[in-house]
Design a protein around this nucleic acid. Structure first.
Length: 499
RNA sequence: CGGGGCGUAGCUCAGCCUGGUAGAGCGCUUGGUUUGGGACCAAGAGGUCGCAUGUUCGAAUCAUGUCGCCCCGACCA
């Protein structure tokens, strides 16, 4: 019997461990199409949870959902110079609209399109084109629209959930009358992402502007939330872009203001993707498989009936059903607690391990002996698999919400502690190579340093495979000199390796 | 697109060097023994050995080509 649910372990081979967790938890599989994944029901359930929570937050801040086409006319992409430059390399292009059988009986593309269509890598241009029509007066503003969609970016090196050719995301696109309002929107959405990451996914993040070199093509400023994975690398978990008037000017999104003057809009865009599932795995999963924060877990509590005889089965099942009903009467964080009785006909050990690998936060075993004693056996996914707590049968349903809260906060606390123990403030250029040298330091993480937004910084960090992730806004101002250019900057930035 | 590795049963792989007609473990099905735990015994199902061409009496094995996957770089949510 292997010691762990997942082989290899994180320390043995992190990338392989990641793939094995995805497989063991039945989240996704690779597909016949290179770079594309099949998201399996358990993986998709995580995405649906994310959608539900985020969508609520978007609606609460005045946004509405809409849907724009998958195909973008090639000429649209050309409208914003930097945008083209950034995305041209990774676009899938549709050039034909019909297939015909040739003499050998093979299908060949026919019906060449007058203008090729690009499969959206992002939708700024097509949405902007619509906004240009929709906006005429200052009374039409702001436009606050989000869409849930798939996008395609033809990547060289795909990695399930983290970087796939096709992925699911949401993209918000807003247009405003003033710069201040657009900037405020950009920061508001960044805050929503950060709150969602920490409060719901239990993933601590740093949020702040990124250097010019890491900016979204066509943006004036890109803000991101950055999380640390268990191998010390940073994962950009969400982005919010202040687009200034770049797209408005390129696409003529303009309006007549209160003084009858023609003005360009100020626009924003912001998004998170199925990459978050990868972040969830790499933040919380352990050597036994996935670990889900209760808030995002499709099933928060699983009841495992244990019985041998039919007689026992009847009593145990009845007890489970009562237990489920009692638990469901309780709420946690304004939602009915999600509980399932797993009565599948299979060996108890296999069944329990399946739930461990899939990350179910709480397992409750109920057998004849428990019923006789008036107890249940509780196991938390944030504790080792064999660690179980006996608890009163009648007390448990009442304390379930408390237990979920405890697991949720413990996971965040653990993730914060991990980040803290793998981060250092560094004030000398010479200490940086050693910090990121895996042979000297078993796991390089985040270095908090003073760096200017200057190409020279990226160039200096490049040999170390390190980039400036963002300059956290929540940190106190702490003026200092850039380690590479000597320019004075007002606060520290996060630098690290990244996904 | 450069450098390395690999395609044999659902999964992990052995066999290939030294050609002779396909194996193991896990999983699956059935029966039995078990039962607070990823069990044991027995029987069974399952593979044109990535694909193509060539060499040969004979190719999983040798040669050439081709397709695909994984890892490391360049690119990125």
């Amino acid at each position: 019997m292997p010691k762990h649910g997942i082989s290899p372990t994180r320390t043995e081979d992190y990338p392989e461990w990641y793939q094995q967790v995805v497989r063991a938890a039945e989240l996704a599989e690779s597909s016949p199409v290179r770079g594309c994944m099949v998201i399996k029901p358990h993986g998709f359930a995580l995405w649906e949870r994310m959608q539900a929570i985020l969508d609520g937050m978007f609606k609460a801040t005045g946004h509405k959902n809409a849907y724009f086409p998958l195909f973008i006319p090639l000429s649209y992409l050309e409208q914003e110079a930097k945008h083209v430059e950034g995305f041209a390399k990774e676009c899938a292009v549709v050039t034909h609209h019909r297939l015909e059988l040739d003499a050998d009986g093979r299908l060949v593309p026919k019906g060449k399109l007058e203008e090729p269509l690009v499969v959206r890598p992002t939708s700024e241009t097509i949405i902007g084109a619509m906004y240009a029509k929709w906006v005429q007066s200052w009374r039409d503003l702001p436009i606050l629209i989000n869409q849930w969609a798939n996008v395609v970016r033809w990547e060289m090196r795909p990695r399930v959930f983290l970087r796939t050719a096709e992925f699911l995301w949401q993209e918000g696109h807003t247009a405003h009358a003033t710069e201040a309002e657009a900037l405020q929107e950009t920061l508001q959405m960044l805050d929503i992402y950060a709150t969602f990451a920490e409060h719901d996914l239990a993933i601590p993040v740093w949020k702040g502007p990124k250097p010019a070199s890491e900016r979204f093509p066509g943006a004036v400023e890109t803000y991101s939330i950055e999380a640390m994975m268990q191998d010390g690398k940073a994962l950009q978990a969400g982005t919010s872009h202040f687009l200034g008037q770049n797209f408005a000017k390129a696409q003529n999104i303009s309006f007549t203001d209160k003084t009858s003057k023609e003005e360009y809009c100020w626009t924003t865009s912001w998004g998170v993707s199925t990459r978050l599932i990868g972040g969830l795995i790499m933040t919380h999963a352990d050597d036994d498989g996935l670990v889900l924060p209760p808030r995002i877990a499709p099933e928060q509590i699983v009841l495992l009936p244990i019985y041998r005889t039919d007689e026992d089965k009847n009593a145990v099942m009845k007890c489970c059903q009562e237990m489920r009903d009692l638990i469901e009467e309780n709420q946690w964080r304004d939602e009915k607690i999600r509980v399932r009785i797993d009565d599948r006909d299979m060996r108890g050990g296999d069944k329990a391990w399946q739930h461990i690998k899939q990350g179910v936060p709480v397992r409750v075993e109920i057998g004849p002996r428990d019923i006789a004693n008036g107890t249940v056996s509780i196991a938390r996914r944030d504790e080792p698999p064999k660690q179980k707590h006996a608890m009163s049968l009648t007390e448990f349903p009442k304390s379930a919400a408390e237990l979920l809260e405890s697991i949720q906060s413990n996971l965040l606390k653990k993730a914060v502690a991990f980040r803290e123990s793998h981060s250092s403030k560094i004030d000398s250029k010479d200490e940086i190579p050693a910090f990121f040298d895996a042979s000297q330091q078993d796991m390089p993480g985040f270095a908090y340093v003073h760096v200017a937004d200057d190409p020279a910084v990226a160039k200096a960090l490049d040999p170390l495979k390190v980039t400036v992730r963002c300059t956290p806004m929540e940190w106190e101002e702490e003026p200092g000199k850039c380690l590479f250019t000597g320019k004075t900057v007002s606060r520290r930035s996060v630098i690290s390796r990244s996904y």
